[in-house]
């Protein structure tokens, strides 16, 4: 199918884009990579009256480390993560995870921030953002606010963003050398959205877990941290028993959805497995 008609603007600056968004209200929509939006427009599930193209806004095309933060500008494509974008466990995790985000041609255009704004429950980047406590920087003509990932993802395809707001960047912590990260996804085919996936980060000190972050995605209507699993690990040595207990805790606590890909019981089963494997990879 083909998209319904819309008016198109290609602003050159952030200020111009924010003015267009403010003036268009509910009718306006941003297009970044277009890799989620254009399919929805082709199906006419989305029929924006006006489309504002971010691709010419050069000031949003950046990625850099500043202090202990990796700042990912709105025009950073998925493909930018094919190589680790920073040293240490954060960079390694991103370069591992990107191989599960859609396919190579889609990664050439799709953006990290677009995934965050789109908020698909099975998005790998949304899971990484939730697990690492990302900060999402939202701008409108009224000003800037920084939204914590835990407050940003509201439900499936729903976020805390207002229609006049734009994500200018997403900030991730650059984890230090004591951290270990791991990721495991189950999908039917390479490049498909996850049916269940887990991302973990462990801060170790002489083999003892000092801090644990366990995130699960593809299972509920948004990515989540799993406090029970994190508590099962804190203060303990990274033994197979501790990892298995944490995986059990995550599987017990999640409230999995049923959809045409998998039912809730199967997803719960998968959460146990993906969490255990992600932990094993981190501990290895």
């Amino acid at each position: 199918m083909k998209p319904a008609p819309f008016r198109y603007d290609a602003p050159a600056t952030l200020d111009e884009t924010l003015s267009l968004l403010a003036e268009a209200g509910e009718h306006g929509k941003l297009i970044a990579g277009g890799q989620s939006l254009v399919p929805m427009m082709n199906f006419r599930l989305a029929r924006p009256g006006r489309l504002f193209d971010l691709n010419g806004v050069a000031e949003l095309d950046f990625m850099r480390v500043e202090g202990a933060r990796l700042r990912i500008g709105a025009l950073t494509r998925h493909a930018a993560f094919h190589r680790p974008p920073c040293e240490g466990p954060t960079g390694a995790l991103l370069a591992e995870v990107v191989r599960h985000v859609a396919h190579y041609p889609i990664r050439q255009r799709g953006t990290f921030a677009g995934s965050i704004a789109h908020a698909d429950p099975a998005s790998e980047w949304c899971l990484v953002a939730a697990t690492l406590d990302a900060e999402i920087v939202a701008r409108s003509r009224a000003g800037e606010r920084v939204i914590a990932a835990r407050d940003f993802f509201v439900a499936s395809l729903a976020t805390a963003l207002r229609p006049d707001e734009l994500v200018t960047e997403v900030r991730l912590p650059v984890l230090g050398a004591r951290w270990r990260t791991g990721f495991c996804e189950f999908a039917r085919r390479a490049g498909d959205f996850a049916i269940a996936m887990s991302a973990v980060a462990l801060r170790l000190d002489a083999g003892i877990v000092r801090e644990a972050r366990v995130g699960v995605g593809g299972v509920e209507d948004r990515p989540s941290r799993q406090p029970a699993a994190e508590q099962a690990l804190a203060g303990r040595p990274v033994s197979p028993a501790a990892l298995a207990e944490a995986a059990d805790a995550a599987a017990r606590e999640v409230k999995p959805m049923t959809d045409l890909h998998a039912d809730a019981a199967y997803r719960r089963h998968l959460v146990r497995t993906t969490t255990r494997r992600a932990l094993e990879r981190a501990a290895a």
């Binding site: 297009i31 277009g34 399919p39 082709n42 889609i106």
Partner: peptide, 27 residues
């Protein structure tokens, strides 16, 4: 498919393979 799944429409833009069904001509 016209929604990015099949890849039949793959072309090179600036040397990179992309789905031509997911890019607008104006872009």
């Amino acid at each position: 498919c016209e929604h990015g799944v099949c890849g039949a429409c793959t072309v090179l833009v600036d040397g990179a393979p992309v789905r031509a069904c997911l890019m607008l001509a104006v872009q």
